[in-house]
Design a protein around this nucleic acid. Structure first.
Lengths: 229, 229
DNA sequence: TGGTGATAGATTGGATCCAATATCCTGGCA
DNA sequence: TGCCAGGATATTGGATCCAATCTATCACCA
């Protein structure tokens, strides 16, 4: 038996289009952790994972090391790795990082945004309106944000931003699972897009800061209640 | 013969106080890359490194994977890893990230800074005054900044901040090596510390943003000239 | 009866071995 | 003489094997 059936299904569906087995394992495990297919705190037994992926323990070990460097897994020497836990403190941490990075990315990107970019962002907002699935919603929201930042011309900044958007989404899934799904604040998205269309950098940055801050605050409140109770 | 004598010396001096060989190799290699002991673009041959460290290729491989995740090495499947290159674009990227993260860290930390923290920051400034060695200067500067951010209570944000301070230092070494050593702008450090002592968050954040931005600008100008020439 | 120490099992860490792939050189051919 | 093909070599990727260490269980003793 695998870590769980969810991971097996993910492995079966995944296209091993990667150049090395390690890359394949790393990408699949990362997705499984980020989408909640493997729950926080789950032990990541090397042999078990190797069997699930149909490979030896070696690529699994290398993949786990990379996940550790990305704070998606925690290593305990001679005791193995576990999926990174979630906590109110860490949620607040991720929120603070997003509040720092995203306004910067937007400010750099905004002058270079094309009409096509803005139209695509608008389309993503419309898609979110009719979306019921939290997972799909997370992806749309992420793409909306990244579309606005895409022209920053700073690959490292963008990668870091996306990484923390993904991390935030991991947290949101737990909020949804517990409190039920609640549609994203579409008003804020629309206001943000309007400011971008107007080319008003200061307003746009303020809005994105508030938007991210508000999401982080709600999340932290939820997590703190969860930890207290 | 090892990658170079510098690394051999680093290995010999390093205390293998780490719990696993992989940790030891990763920490030592990271330091070697960040301090410029191994130059950008240098191929990181597994066998060669293994021999230098006196271990097998396995811990080296795991260490290289972690360095890749931290953007300190670049992997090319079946061709091996090389030390991350430096470029004007990447330097500007790191600068932008610092300009985003550091004001946030400072704003969160400032209300909780103790008199002892501020005194230590002052001491670090004084030490910098008399310092001639660029490497030691980088460390002092980093400790000065991190002292001011230390009370943010956001381990993830702080780790990310320190990581990019280190990355920036790697770049600065090349600037020093080419243009000769130039002491840091101590006036800016003193003004920043004064604002912190006064508890003036807005001023302090503005100063740190300008301070980081100015350093990044100088660096980018130097790197662009270097790439053009 | 509770606690402590030894021992067995499980699991990871590290070494060695084999396979796959990229690079480089050489020779043949146009 | 220049270019392409093919093979030799070097290096990495992956599998297997052994050693180190952690955990849990059980017996023994206070």
């Amino acid at each position: 038996m695998a870590v769980n059936d969810g991971l097996s299904r993910l492995v079966a569906r995944a296209q091993p289009r990667h150049r090395t087995t390690t890359e394949f394992v790393e990408a699949t495990l990362r997705e499984a952790i980020l989408t909640g297919v493997i729950a926080p705190g789950t032990p990541l037994r090397q042999e078990e994972l190797a069997e699930t992926f149909g490979v030896s323990r070696m690529p699994v070990r290398e993949a786990l090391r990379q996940l550790e460097a990305r704070a998606l897994a925690e290593f305990h020497p001679h005791r193995g790795a576990v999926v990174a836990e979630i906590s109110a403190a860490d949620g607040a941490d991720i929120g603070a990082i997003r509040m720092a990075l995203e306004p910067m990315a937007l400010r750099l990107s905004l002058p270079s945004l094309t009409a096509a970019d803005l139209d695509q962002a608008e389309e993503l907002i419309a898609e979110m309106d009719g979306e019921a699935d939290p997972g799909r919603m997370g992806e749309l929201n992420r793409r909306f944000h990244m579309t606005l930042y895409a022209r920053a011309g700073r690959p490292r900044l963008l990668a870091l931003t996306e990484q923390h958007l993904l991390a935030a989404d991991r947290y949101l899934r737990f909020q949804f699972a517990a409190l039920g799904y609640r549609p994203r604040s579409q008003d804020e998205h629309r206001a943000l897009l309007a400011a971008c269309r107007a080319g008003n950098a200061d307003t746009a940055c303020r809005l994105v800061t508030e938007h991210v801050g508000q999401a982080a605050e709600q999340l932290t409140a939820f997590l703190e209640g969860r930890e207290a109770g």
